[in-house]
Design a protein around this nucleic acid. Structure first.
Lengths: 336, 336
DNA sequence: CTGTTAGCGCATTCAT
DNA sequence: ATGAATGCGCTAACAG
């Protein structure tokens, strides 16, 4: 089923069919109607792959995420997909599973597919990995270079404000020892460390000013099914256990809650997570969070990418990153 | 950057380069090495799009899901993506957002992309929508026809056993009125209704045998942010409120829990959800669930698709569906 | 063992 | 307003 069949069925040349489909050039109104009718009848859809041979636009963008287990990436994909579809683009999803090699492989695949652009959800590889996008002239967001730093810094700045609000609140409530939980970086991993570093930096500064201890609790890996994190349990049993727990990552939060389940929230410990979800809100008590509108961010980021692909000027403000501290009942005064 | 450049750079013809890349036909070992070196040096990746013009295989499969908000679909996508990547395939993701029109549009896009096959995560459209895949000779799983019914029935049978176990347990614990919560079908929606019907059917049979009342509680839509489901609250205030709540769908569970938050679990009400997650397990008390291994299911389903695409005989047992009832502390004896 | 050539499905230029 | 012809990057059939 090709354009040729439609042409034969309509009794015109393929050039005319092509013009009718794309309404480019001149086509008599009645001929056009007949062509469209034939298309309908034959159930013909022009091959996007053949099209992209001629034009050099594939109408396909890639989305790279590190882990397809974190609900945050569902939000991300939802945002990318909806923005892409609205503009007639289709989304190729690749997950790196936290491994720079897999990520590189995924990028290679995108190059092979000649995607028009790539949205980087998380990026675990080094800048050399990004280089292959540049080499092949593939647009991507967030971009590298000064703009990227601007974006990153916009994101970090937005979040830093929320982090400060959260930290101040904990201090105000009398907490004197705060635990900050992270999952150990995979070897070679980059970006998450970047964000965590920024968060930790802000918290650290705030805590040292206030004379509050900040413990970095690093999980080597996610606890197995049904098991509790030894690292966390151990810290809770130390002489001077933290009275507040901050989780760097939404997908870590349930594990932290599980490990803390011997303690009452918020009477014994207060809990805050980076990243919000309906589950955090439905938990009893509801868990305070540093929220991001990942869906909107992804949409905006994708629009930006499509703009740059299509040579349109990027939206006036680009991507506006917002972040906010949502105080919920999981936060209370420090015990005694 | 094309095969031509590589040929020129190596000082051979494009045919030789092609043969070297695909190691098809004869190529002198040293020539092959030089070609590969040139490729490396120039950073050349053959265009999959041009390849698929000749081969009529795109090495791309589509994945259709209804809603990109349910974590279950993350598992699904993870399974599809991992199985696909292992075989060198790439995944195009389309979400229908519960709308048959969007779904149809997504299928059209897949046709335009000439994907080699489609994995149907959920399928909200009618069979006429599926027809376009058949028309274009696009393989898909679950397949339609007898095989599909076999698959569906295998799935339903597996789950039915778990449902019965759960139902019997509730009855055994003295529950005399059980609520089954569903989200109202979108107009035109099909598959979810199908599964829910099966679940409801099993529960219904079991309850009537045991002389237990089964209330179908239908939510018109998901409660807005921060709001509670009026429908649920209302039922809890009726003269004879249910003592056990069964949620048809994992993504509905947090809303149900939120709406039930005036009651103690499991002292006042018992709660079970279809679909498990770390959050259900981390909740206090941990929420009982009917579990599925969505990741493995998706992987198996995708392998099956790839087998059929490549003319390989499908794996011996095809897809094995497993489902189990996970009793947790959210279930207790009926009050008084 | 290697090079030349045709053609996959389509958009586009150039005639007519 | 329409048709014939060209080429996008690649593989496969054929010729040498």
């Amino acid at each position: 089923m090709t354009i040729k069949d439609v042409a034969a069925h309509t009794g015109v040349s393929i050039a005319t069919v092509s013009r009718a489909i794309n309404d480019s050039g001149y086509v008599a109104a009645d001929v056009k109607a007949r062509v469209l009718a034939s298309m309908q009848e034959l159930g013909f859809r022009p091959s996007q792959r053949a099209r992209s041979m001629r034009n050099s636009r594939t109408m396909t963008i890639g989305a790279i995420v590190s882990e397809l287990v974190n609900p945050v990436y569902l939000e991300f994909l939802r945002g990318v997909e909806s923005a892409a579809n609205e503009s007639g683009y289709v989304v190729l999803v690749v997950s790196s599973q936290g491994s720079p090699e897999k990520e590189h492989e995924g990028l290679q695949r995108m190059v092979a597919e000649r995607v028009d652009g790539v949205v980087l959800g998380t990026f675990v590889g080094g800048s050399n990995s990004l280089a292959i996008l540049a080499e092949h002239n593939i647009a991507h967001v967030p971009p590298t270079g000064p703009v990227s730093e601007a974006l990153n810094s916009a994101w970090v700045v937005a979040e830093a404000a929320a982090t400060r609000e959260m930290g101040r609140r904990l201090v105000e409530l009398g907490h004197r020892r705060i635990a900050y939980v992270v999952l150990q970086d995979m070897p070679g991993r980059r970006t998450p460390g970047f964000y965590h570093k920024a968060r930790y930096g802000v918290l650290h500064e705030l805590c040292s000013e206030a004379g509050v201890a900040l413990d970095l609790v690093t999980l080597v890996r996610l606890p197995a099914d049904g098991a509790r994190s030894d690292e966390i349990v151990e810290v809770t049993r130390s002489d001077e256990p933290p009275s507040a727990w901050v989780t760097c990552n939404h997908s870590l939060l349930p594990y932290v809650l599980d490990a803390l389940s011997g303690l009452r929230i918020p009477e014994d410990v207060s809990v805050v997570g980076y990243g919000d979800s309906i589950w955090a809100a439905a938990y009893r008590p509801p868990i305070a969070a540093i929220g991001h509108d990942t869906y909107s961010e992804a949409r905006a980021l994708t629009s930006m990418l499509l703009d740059s692909i299509n040579g349109r000027p990027p939206a006036p403000d680009g991507v506006e990153y917002k972040s906010w501290f949502i105080e919920r009942e999981s936060i209370g005064p420090a015990p005694r």
